[in-house]
């Protein structure tokens, strides 16, 4: 066991190695490890946040869908109501129009009937008078049977 100058040499070597490790090895590697740890933690946090946001978005989408459905059914109900109204209105209008046309037609028919009746009466009267004239000319004195002719004309 010779203790000699090697001891000092080894001691100095040791010091230099430790210094080098401390300055150029340990610090950068632990720094990188720390940085990576941080970035992983950030990534996990971001992932969690994303998941949370997705859940919120899903919730929101559900809400929007629900609202839209509600609105759609409202609109549908309104449209149905409006359609029914329109149909009713149309029915009423049609009925009124029909009534009006019917009334007008009836009154026209009545007028036509009256007019025809009037003409007929006049024609029959004239015909009767003409017939009576022919008979009377042949047999009877017009004067003597004036009364009968008149009463006949009246009866028609």
């Amino acid at each position: 066991m010779n203790i000699n100058l090697t001891l000092i040499g080894q001691l100095l070597t040791f010091v230099v190695f430790v210094w080098f490790t401390m300055k150029y090895v340990w610090t950068p590697i632990t720094g990188a490890l720390e940085e990576r740890r941080k970035s992983i933690a950030d990534g996990l946090a971001a992932g969690e946040r994303g998941q949370h946001e997705q859940e919120l978005a899903k919730e929101r989408a559900k809400q929007v869908l629900h609202d839209a459905k509600g609105q759609a059914s409202d609109i549908l109900a309104q449209a149905q109501k409006r359609a029914a109204e329109i149909v009713d209105e149309a029915k009423t209008n049609a009925r009124q129009e029909g009534d009006r046309i019917l009334t007008a037609a009836r009154s026209e028919i009545e007028q036509e009937t009256n007019r025809a009746r009037e003409q007929l009466r006049e024609k029959v009267a004239a015909l009767a008078i003409a017939g009576a004239e022919k008979i009377l000319r042949k047999e009877i004195n017009a004067e003597a049977h004036q009364d009968i002719v008149n009463s006949l004309a009246k009866e028609i």
Binding site: T13, F17, Y24, V25, P28, I29, A32, L33, S39
Partner: peptide, 17 residues
Amino acid sequence: GVLFLYIFKKAADAATA
């Protein structure tokens, strides 16, 4: 010792996050 420092220095230079 130099071998050790060389290997670890190389790793330290390449060290990233």
